[in-house]
Amino acid sequence: MEKVEQRLITEDGRRIDGRALDEMRPVRIEAGVLDRSDGSAYIEMGKTKIYAAVYGPKEAHPRHLAQPHKAILNCRYHMASFSVEGRKAPGMTRREIELSKVIREALESIVILEEFPRSAIDIFIEVIQADAGTRTAGLTAASLALADAGIPVLDLCAGIAVGKVEGRIVLDPSEEEDKRGEADMPVAMAPRLGSIVLLQLNGRLNSSEFREALSLAKKGIDVLYELQRKALSKKFSGLTQIGED
């Protein structure tokens, strides 16, 4: 207990991994990475590594769950048992059930569900390595996977966490900062719709800190959004001539 914990932010405003306060971890985003699914995506943010896949629209099961005027979305956010320090029990934890719900609700706000009555769209998010920010990275990948499947959406959505660490607001907290920080706020937005699709807060913030955190999140989300667009456009690169039908 006597061990003195290292400060998370240095005098000159650097974080323990060397990042500036408003700097996110290196990101990699790819679309169309799993062949069996109708649409898929992969995201890496630092050491966080996540696959997302979309199946459907397909028949809703059981059939009584089908809605006559729109598709239903099913979403499963799951962490592999080896994705964390130690070993996580393989089944769905309460945390995973809650996160599956908030991610699904975020996606329901952007998918044009009315287009596919009586059907179901399944979204699977599998975290193969968790190093903070998994729900927002998972949502970012899921949104991309939906677009990859050609399912009509109002906009893409992307998400990132902001944290309060030693009194300062930081973008994309690391696991260490998340654990020892004062607050963690996952945010996801559909930027072109000018809207928030997911918002949670764990920890304490006053209203001016909240505003600062939200605008910092917007900054990170704009970067992720551009990467999503690039990943999608890549599928069409080199298509210089489109045939007539």
Binding site: I112, A147, P152, V153, L154, R192, L239
Partner: peptide, 17 residues
């Protein structure tokens, strides 16, 4: 095809050409 109208303007609903 594959567009939607919101507030009188036309937006893309899918990625494509």
């Amino acid at each position: 095809a594959h567009t939607y109208v919101y507030g009188g303007k036309v937006y893309a609903a899918v990625a494509g050409i």
